[in-house]
């Protein structure tokens, strides 16, 4: 359920008394209602569902979790116990 895609706020506007904006996803832009993220600033990322921004993406948390995972990879903490399995082939499925 609930496709919600992260995009960057690139324009602010007001329509019929509602705080609205344009959110850019990889160069394609969509109009979104910003009433639920009143503190959002231009340049911030938000997830958009059904034309509504629902949450400003927590950049700190995102960077932290990615860093954590990256460190785990680099430190070799994620070591497979068994040799890499060959990816399944069509017949074996």
């Amino acid at each position: 359920m609930c496709l919600a895609i992260p995009g960057k706020l690139v324009e602010l506007s007001n329509e019929n008394g509602l705080k609205m904006g344009i959110v850019d996803v990889n160069g394609s832009k969509t109009r979104a209602c910003l009433e639920y993220v009143p503190e959002i600033q231009l340049g911030q990322y938000t997830i958009v569902h059904a034309g509504f921004a629902l949450k400003i993406i927590d950049e700190e948390d995102a960077a932290e979790s990615l860093k954590l995972w990256q460190e785990l990879i680099e430190s070799g903490a994620f070591q497979p116990d068994e040799p890499d399995r060959e990816p399944p082939t069509f017949e074996s499925l």
Binding site: G7, V25, N26, G27, S28, T30
Partner: peptide, 12 residues
């Protein structure tokens, strides 16, 4: 293309 990917993600 990047923009096509973006639009496809948005529209599912």
């Amino acid at each position: 293309k990047a923009e096509v990917r973006g639009a496809c993600e948005l529209l599912g």
